[in-house]
Amino acid sequence: MKTFEYARAESPADAVRKFAPGAMYLGGGTNLVDLMRLGVARPDHLVDVSRLPLDAVEEAGDRVRIGAAVRNSDLAAHPLIRSRYPMLARALLAGASGQVRNMATVAGNLLQRTRCAYFQDVTRPCNKREPGSGCPAIEGDHTNLAILGASHACVATHPSDMAVALAALDAEVHVTGPGGDKIIPMPGLHRLPGDAPERDTVLDPGDLITGVELPAPPPGASLYRKVRERASFAFALASIAAVLDVRDGTVAGCRIALGSLAHAPWRAERAEQVLVGGPATGEAFLTAAEAELEQARALPRNAFKVPLARNLIVRALEELAS
């Protein structure tokens, strides 16, 4: 294991100041420490931001602000989240295990890396880990990799459940950094791989997520559903966060975000466009799902994700409409 320097930040500004080249921010460590043990992450400096005073969940008018260091289990249990954003609570509780959720932070959850087997194995090529080395997943094990928005360089998926719910809720990610403060609307934090799969997000070096702000919950019913072959403690084969507002049989509003299908939480904008203003019928839901999945590009081992995503969209909307 490579030696590194460890420093604890006293404030967000102090964290950014301490962020030297080759540094990484340390939150709960539930992914980064694993990656360091595997040799995938090799930071020279760790700046510990887990104890920054960013651990509150607060009401701000009709919005809710969540500190970046709030632990996943605390967020899932918070009355404001449970009452106003039950979909987010469900997504959080669908992730990892109780022990991991007790450690994992909001920012760390957003910034966790793909679990692609090749990415996590330094003895095999991976364009995300080692740009230009190749992507053996495309002809190898891509069972749980992307069918949407992938590139010839990378078919990795983003594994978070929480981020899928945040994408459906139009959450805003608050960032501070060497270049000042900025606000990034979800799902814009994560990028598609293109020719630069080594970049998971639009963040610049030294950028620090300080919190997430949730707008007022959208009208309508919502749900989060996750599919996995093991009933607990497994990453999704696919997941969906959906909100549906039906008035007099017509779709007044709709939000659909899909997980584990792309390099980023995937907002199903095409499906939403097809649905809004139209009838809330099973036929319309299927048309919308198929419109979204026309852009799917499956590989031999993950072709099941296309019918799975279609079924999930249709079934989620049917359930919300009833």
Binding site: R115, A117, D121, G140, D141, E229, R230, A231, S232, A234
Partner: peptide, 15 residues
């Protein structure tokens, strides 16, 4: 491939 317990799944209590 899948050389760890996050990828090689054994049953959890919920199973």
């Amino acid at each position: 491939l899948r050389r760890d317990l996050a990828q090689y799944h054994v049953p959890a209590c919920a199973d």
